[in-house]
Nucleic acid binder design. Structure first.
Length: 212
DNA sequence: CTAGGGATGGGCT
DNA sequence: GCCCATCCCTAGT
């Protein structure tokens, strides 16, 4: 066993239990341009290919390990960043013991440090609360790309501070933008801080594009 | 305010 | 060759 710190220990369990407890945590990324820190306000849990109780066809790991999703099978506390829609990055924090794939997708947050740098990275943002109000927005504001996939979020140039055990009001609901729910759509995969203005606006998965 | 569609390229069948 | 764990702008209520 490794002599991991308490944060990694905390992340080494069930992503569905960890996700709501990560609300309010602060993830920091230091770069040459400066530091940006985000207080996480919305998350989604994603599981691996071997959970018979709650099979997760919406997860990138559903069909087994690949080069892209390899970090999800690795140690807790590392980042899994993927590229999608030809232009966007989204970031996860890996959970569970090494070898058992799971992660939490960072869906939204409040920029609590480096707002100026975050705005420079996201010039289309019209209000401070929109700087990280979506998974790709959050990744962009933090300056995360696939280059960072697999890196340890608990060590330099990153940092993760857990929230104080609090009575924060947590809401739960279905995932956003995931078509392959399978039999899991009734399960609370998504968690957010009730009423927080930075939470992404819900948008159900779109149906197939109509014929031209 | 909501609904719709275009952008744009890696990942996987 | 199809599918995206999305965002943003436009047009219409």
């Amino acid at each position: 066993m490794t002599t991991s710190g308490p944060v990694r220990q905390f992340l080494s369990g069930d992503a569905r239990e960890i996700a709501p407890l990560l609300l309010g945590a602060v993830l920091t990324h230091d770069s040459d341009d400066g530091s940006v820190a985000v207080r996480i306000t919305e998350l989604e849990a994603y599981m691996g290919p071997v959970d018979s109780l709650h099979p997760d066809p919406g997860s990138h790991t559903y069909r087994g390990p690949t080069r892209r999703n390899a970090p999800m099978f690795g140690p807790a506390g590392h980042l899994y960043v993927y590229f999608t829609y030809g232009m966007h990055y989204c970031a996860n924090i890996v959970c569970g013991p090494a070898g058992h794939a799971s992660a939490v997708l960072l869906r939204a947050g409040e920029i609590v440090e480096g707002r100026e740098l975050a705005l420079a990275r996201r010039p289309t943002s019209k209000a401070a609360k929109d700087l990280a109000s979506g998974p790709a927005r959050l990744a962009t504001a933090l300056g995360l790309t696939t280059e960072d996939s697999g890196r340890d979020a608990l060590g330099s140039p990153f940092g993760l501070v857990l929230p104080p055990a609090s009575a924060a009001h947590v809401s739960t609901g279905p995932r956003v933008g995931v078509a392959g729910h399978g039999g899991t759509h009734d399960y609370p995969w998504r968690f957010w801080l009730t009423g927080d203005p930075t939470v992404s606006r819900y948008k159900a998965a779109k149906a197939r594009t109509p014929r031209a």
